[in-house]
Structures are given as C-alpha cells and as structure tokens.
Design a protein around this nucleic acid. Structure first.
Lengths: 346, 346
DNA sequence: ATGAAAGCGCTAACAA
DNA sequence: TTGTTAGCGCTTTCAT
C-alpha cells in the first residue's frame, strides 16, 4: 500500500483553506462554484507539488461506487477468454474503470465464492462467463443490486442479460458438415458435462444425428473437461479401438481438447483426415497453421469487449424500460482440410 | 454496486449491541475478548440470517490495506502472460487477495498511467511485466511504498526485485544452433525496439554472430512489434527478395510474430525448413503441432504465479534484511524440425 | 464482558 | 466565493 500521506485534508491545513474547496478544485468543480482563479491555481499547483493523488478507496466508500468491474472467466489461459478480457480491460480503462480478474476454473463453488467476494468489493458490475450448472447465485447477485452481464453462456427462462455464442447452431452445422461428407460414426469429445456450452453443443450434435436419422450412441460421447489432457487421453483410448469401432470422425468441443487430440494422433501416427476426420469448436489464430489445417466453428467477435461493457453500463442508468437487448453471436463454420469426404472414391 | 444495507451498524442497532462487539465476533475475536457464548452465537446467527457481508472498501480505508494486487502485462492475449495471470490469480485467491488486471499494450504512457491508477487504488503491491523503456516511474512507485515485482524483464543496476527470463542466453543458444547448422545469413524478426526483452534477444543474436565471426548486418533486423501482423508483413517483404538476399534462416523473437510469418510462408508456398529455417522464441502448447514443428526457445515456469506472489508478500513484512532474491528462469532450446542442416548434402 | 468514540479520506448538503 | 459538518462502514483505543 502506498504511503502517501498527502490528502485533501493535509493540503487544506497547509494552505489554510477548507477541504471542500480543495475537493471542488481537484474535481474540476472550481468554475462551477465560482472559486477564485487565484485559489484554483494555488490548490492545483500545491497538489501537484505535493504529488497528491486521490484515495479511491475513500472515494468509493463515500460515493458507494467503486469504479470497478468484476470479470469472471473459467480460465484466462483459454485464448477465447483472454481475448475477451483484453477487449473489456481496454474499453474499461477508457471509462476509468478497473477490472478485477477472476478465474473460476470451471468450478461452481469457486464461482459462487467469487461472486460474493466481488460483491464485498462493491464492484459496480460483473461480467461473467458462468459455469452454467446453476444460476441462483447469479440471480441473487443481480437482484441485490449488482448489475450482471452473462457472456458466452446464458440460462433459458432466466432474466439475466447475456451475450451468447450460438453454440447449438454451431454444433449443428459442424456435425451436419461431417455427415454431408459421409461420416456416420462420429465421436464427440466433450468438455465439462452439464456446463451450458457443453449442453448446447451436445444438443447440436444429437440434433444433427437425428436430422439424418442416425441413432445417437452415448458411448461415442467421451471426456469431461475442456483441457488439453482430456483431448489427449480420450484420443489415446479412441485410437486403441479405432479398427473395432469404425469411428471415422471426431467432433471436438474445444480448442484445447483438439490440441491434445492432435498431439495423441501425431504420436500414434494417425493421419488426419485420412484415418480420421475432425471438426473443432473455437477458431484460433493458429487453426490454419496446424499440421492439418483445422476446420473449426468460429464464434468470436472483435468488439465483444465493447459490447459486454456497454450492456453493463446500460444497467447503471437503471432506466427500467431500457433493458439491454441480449446478443447472440453468430457462429461460423470455417472449412479447411481436416475432414475427408467419404463419398468420394480415392 | 450491491445495495446490501446490512452493516455491522445495522446489526448492532437491531440487536441492541455495540458495533464493537459485532465487529469482534465477526472477525473471530470473540474468544479473545471473552464475549459471552450467547452473544457470540446471537451475532453470528443474525449476521448469517441477514446475509451480512463486510464492506471491503470500508475495511480497506480503515486498515490502509486493500488486499488487492495490481498485475500489469503488455497483452493478456499473449499466451505467456495469460499463463502468468492464471497462476497469480489462483495463488492470490488462496491468500484472499484480488487481482487488478491491466494491459499496458506495450505503451509506456499507458504503463505510467496504470501504475498511478493502481496506486490510487491503494493496491498492496504490483506485479508488472514492464515495457522496459524506462523505469523511473517504477522506482518512484516502489519508493513511495508500493511493493513491486518485475516479471519477464528487469533493469540493470536498478534495485527492483525481479523474476526474469534469460532472454540473452536463450537468444544466444538459438542463434548458435542456427549457425551450427550452417546458417550465416540469419534474418532477425524483432518485437518492439527498445523494450527489454527485445534488447536482450538482439544482444544474444549479435553475440552469436560475433562468436562465429559473422558480421552483423542491420538490414537483416526487421519489424517493430511483437504481434502477428508484424511477422506477416515482414515475411512477405522477405519473401520478395529471398533469392537476392540469400537469407537462409529467421530468428523470430516472439510466438505471435512466428505465427504471422508462418501464415505468410504458407500463402506463398515457401517451404520450412527447405526454403528457409526458423527458430522462434516462446514455446507454446501448439509449437509441436504446427505444419512444421517449430524449434523454440522455452522460458516458462509452472510456478511463476507462486513465485512472483511470494516475492511480493516477502516485501510486505518489510524486514529490510530479507530482501527477496531475484530469480532468473532458465531458457531452454527445444529442437524440432524447423531448421535445415545446410552442412549435410541432400 | 461490553461499549463509546475517534478517525481512515472523501463528498455534499447546508450555511454564510 | 468559501467553510462547517455529517457520514460512508469499519477497526481499535481507551474506558468501564
């Protein structure tokens, strides 16, 4: 903690002027209160000389406003969330807001704790990519006066403003694309079971099968984590039984999963797309540069930061009749070389 | 801002007990002050029922301690810093500290502003990956009572504790490796000129040349940014004159630069390592999975978060004679397939 | 075993 | 044009 004892109080004393005047001048309210130019100048100069800087904590206590926004993501290491955080932080700074960064680690307990921690910090609002297993604590937070914006995931039938990716559609498209290329036995490498994006993506997978009259086989759905290791171990298992199972394609629900999976395939000499086809969620800057250019579902938006922050600020005005409109990001299938067309003879 | 009006004051009133007692009980000091078990129980239960949660801002003002740490990185989107942030945040949470995340965008002005902003927030300390162009403001901050830990970069002859990567050695190794493989005309794709890692890596490059009696040619050093686009455009330029210049290898100073460069080469059909060899700074989880497995300089440590936080906490104790020891992360050359051995006939 | 009161640094209603 | 003062919610010294 900085040990700068220069306060408006100390300035006031040393100048023989009241704190009010100091406060006013330093907040640019000198004109408004018709404080004499002499005084204004004097205050400004001495504040400068003494290297005064306001104590935001005291300000926050007084104003009941912290100029701080909480950002909760599952994992800042995930490029998608890093980009989100970057956008938000940059935009927030322009508005003189600070960002509390918190990782929930996709752990609902951590998420709940974090929410209340942030509330104790009197954050002016929270932007959160929720785990999605539960939303009671979110509703409670919102009701108790902490504006919320959900990002990436939302809750059906719950009145919390959100910016969501169209996970369902993205998944549907990806799997339809696989099916269009003649794939019928498609393994599904999933993330954390029960989380909202996982549910949506699984729904899309199932629906695509259904639309094409392919029976859903729960044994083809594997894994329970969005991380690299999950992809790696699942892939190793899959490779063992590849001949038996006749699986010809994989639908991967996350970029980290996909990397793990690629690593395993590389180690085992499995060729993509010759031996197995892949479509993966999450377009990345390197998707095109992998040893097999990856077909991906992209669901990023450049101005995600602006958008989410704006949705939050809109709530600050408390104008009940201007509820922020929810946003659904379009997802887009980017086709590259990781899927083999089984309908073509080769 | 949460509008929870439950304060120790309101509890005190409703219970007809003094705030002092409430405060003591709620801070677990009941025993110590020999408050009767009845009262303790009563206070705890009502606090719970009323859903009381302490106002950290008020606490901070009183205690002159914010339980908050500022983290300044150039760009959270860069995987290296994301990993750092993840580690720090996780560790900080265990100690009930919050993290203010700030991107400096490699802009020294932003860095300076951010430092003073964080100081106004009374952060208990700052962990920063400084731009490296200047350190006056850092020294000032440190002297004024805000403990600092520099990460990734440091300043020679300046008494600020740091955890640094051994950029110089890493660069020296990488370039020696290229030279050992018969490369003499090595282009250097650099990041932001003047920043500390860039300087160090450039030094390593120069030294490697010198050690092998190869003249340094400033025209071979190109670019001025750690981003993707810089790699891309520099590579495009380089390709145009590839035949003329006889450049056989590239030393890239950052992973994002390398991705841009790969993109350009892919577009232009330039083969790696046949047409040109590459060694890149920054090992990434996908380095092995690129269309040409990339030889990289790795300089990450798993427990970077713990370490940097610990260095900060050590300073809190203000025990002057236990100054934290600086740490230099070993850099390690990881050899893959992106360098051609020119000494072998093919 | 419990409480009164001061004060952290700031803002703003009210006064003059 | 400037100042007095109360109070944001909390901790802690000093009293009892």
């Amino acid at each position: 903690m900085k040990e700068n004892n220069v306060t408006i109080n100390s300035i006031a004393k040393s100048l023989g002027i009241s704190v009010t005047t100091i406060s006013r001048v330093l907040n640019g309210l000198g004109e408004q209160y018709r404080i004499s130019k002499k005084t204004i100048e004097l205050v400004k100069v001495t504040a400068d000389n003494l290297n005064y800087s306001p104590n935001n904590i005291a300000k926050g206590l007084r104003l009941k406003k912290s100029s701080t926004i909480g950002l909760i993501v599952p994992d800042i290491t995930n490029a998608w969330f890093a980009q989100l955080a970057f956008g938000i932080e940059n935009e927030a700074r322009k508005h003189h807001y600070n960002i509390f960064l918190c990782n929930s680690n996709d752990d609902i307990k951590v998420e709940k704790k974090t929410i209340s921690l942030l509330q104790n910090w009197m954050v002016d609002g929270i932007i959160i990519a929720p785990i999605g297993l539960d939303c009671e604590h979110l509703v409670k937070a919102s009701k108790s006066g902490t504006p919320l914006v959900l990002i990436d995931r939302f809750f059906e039938g719950v009145d919390l403003p959100y910016i969501s990716s169209n996970d369902y559609e993205g998944s549907l498209d990806a799997n339809q694309y696989l099916i269009d290329n003649g794939h019928k036995k498609i393994a599904c490498f999933q993330g954390i079971v029960g989380t909202s994006p996982n549910k949506q993506r699984l729904e899309g997978y199932k629906q695509a099968l259904k639309n094409n009259k392919i029976a859903f086989n729960p044994e083809l759905v594997m894994g329970n984590d969005f991380g690299f290791n999950n992809g790696y171990t699942s892939a190793k298992k899959l490779i063992k039984n590849l001949a038996k199972t006749n699986i010809t394609a994989i639908f991967s629900m996350g970029n980290q999963i996909t990397l793990g999976l690629l690593k395993a395939f590389k180690e085992e000499g499995v060729q993509i797309p010759n031996d197995i086809s892949i479509v993966s969620f999450d377009e990345q800057i390197y998707s095109d540069l992998l040893f097999t250019p990856m077909s991906t579902v992209s669901h990023m938006s450049e101005n995600l930061g602006d958008m989410s922050l704006k949705m939050l600020f809109d709530q600050f005005d408390k104008n009940e009749n201007t509820k922020p409109k929810n946003v659904v990001l379009k997802s887009k299938l980017i086709i590259r070389d990781s899927v083999k067309n089984l309908k073509l003879k080769n």
